[in-house]
Amino acid sequence: MTKTSGTAGTEPAVSFTGAVKRFGAVRAVDGIGLDIARGETVALLGRNGAGKSTTIALLLGLDEPDEGAVRLFGAAPDAALRAGRVGAMLQEGRAVPRVTVRELVTFVARRYPDPMPVADALRLAGVTDLADRRVDRLSGGQTQRVRFAVALAGDPELVVLDEPTAALDVEARHAFWASMRAYARRGHTVLFSTHYLEEADAHADRIVVIDHGRIVADGSGESIKRSAGGHLVAFDLAGRSTEGLSLLPGVVSVEVRGDRARLRTDDSDATVVALAAMGAIRRLEVAPASLEDAFLALTSEPAAPAADIPADAPADVPLKESVR
């Protein structure tokens, strides 16, 4: 089987159709329908326990849906993986002792039918200068870039990155994303999950937000920000009542922190004019809503009780969580 088998170029790179995965009473993935076109760079966002890791496990054939279907390039995930069409960089993994970076990438490349030249994988991942270093003697940031080189070794058309910059310092994160963009510019498809929302905003063509196993938003960073109220208007209450703030023009939601009100609005001009008419303009501040603001608005519903979670469920199922 080759990477161009089947009706190449017609099917999406990734297709979920009504995918459901249960762990006891918990539906970790709850009817997801999602298509990712070839050449897209897509960020997958969600709180701890939202269903991201289970979704990625289904995509990579590490688990099977209880209902629905998952297809990669029109084929079952295991077939696409065997053909070398998919590379993955997962959160878990440990350094292989006593082998060099070049030896490791070469070994992995030989497992694929039509691998990328090792020199190209090293260059794209930004680790050419580390080629003769032992893998178990690298820093955390260097190890992550080597793992990216391993994911590229089969010359995949789709690469899946699960929290690729977790625990990296700022310099290492910048180096990693430079490598990822070089790969994407070759026309390949990238799906990555991250808890660094600014990375999703900066590097993804499209953002998919999952909460309680369902897709709650799907679009560009700008469209998702607009859907949750495009601007924030903040001002000091100075003892004033908050009554009526939610009825002001454009206001989507109201939040009060101490003596300061924060209004999420899709028409900041109209909101400010109305506030001025009320005389409520002390320390007025107007700013575009961030992706974090939109994310919190989309995923603020309380989680399911932890008692419903089976002991052998994957790590992303418990929903007693902080925002990622």
Rank of each mutant, 00 (worst) to 15 (best):
A175C: 05
A119Q: 15
G140E: 11
V118E: 03
L124K: 03
D211G: 11
D132F: 09
A153R: 04
V105G: 04
P115A: 13
H174E: 10
I207K: 00
D120E: 15
L138S: 12
M180K: 06
A182S: 14
S139G: 13
S193F: 05
W177R: 05
Q142W: 12
V99W: 03
A119D: 15
D114C: 10
A149V: 13
A95V: 10
F107W: 13
G126R: 05
Y183T: 06
F148G: 11
H174D: 09
V135Q: 04
V118H: 01
T128C: 07
A95E: 09
P156Y: 09
R173K: 12
A109C: 10
T189K: 00
R214H: 06
R185L: 06
L197V: 09
P115L: 06
G141Q: 13
L152W: 04
A166K: 10
V105A: 08
F192S: 04
G187K: 06
L104M: 14
F107K: 05
D155E: 14
V216N: 08
L168S: 08
L168T: 06
F192C: 06
D114A: 15
R145N: 10
D120N: 11
D205M: 02
A178T: 14
A200E: 02
I207Y: 00
G93R: 09
F176P: 00
E198H: 13
V150W: 06
A125T: 09
D205Q: 09
V159Q: 05
I207S: 00
R111I: 09
V159M: 05
I215M: 09
T165P: 01
A151I: 06
G126C: 07
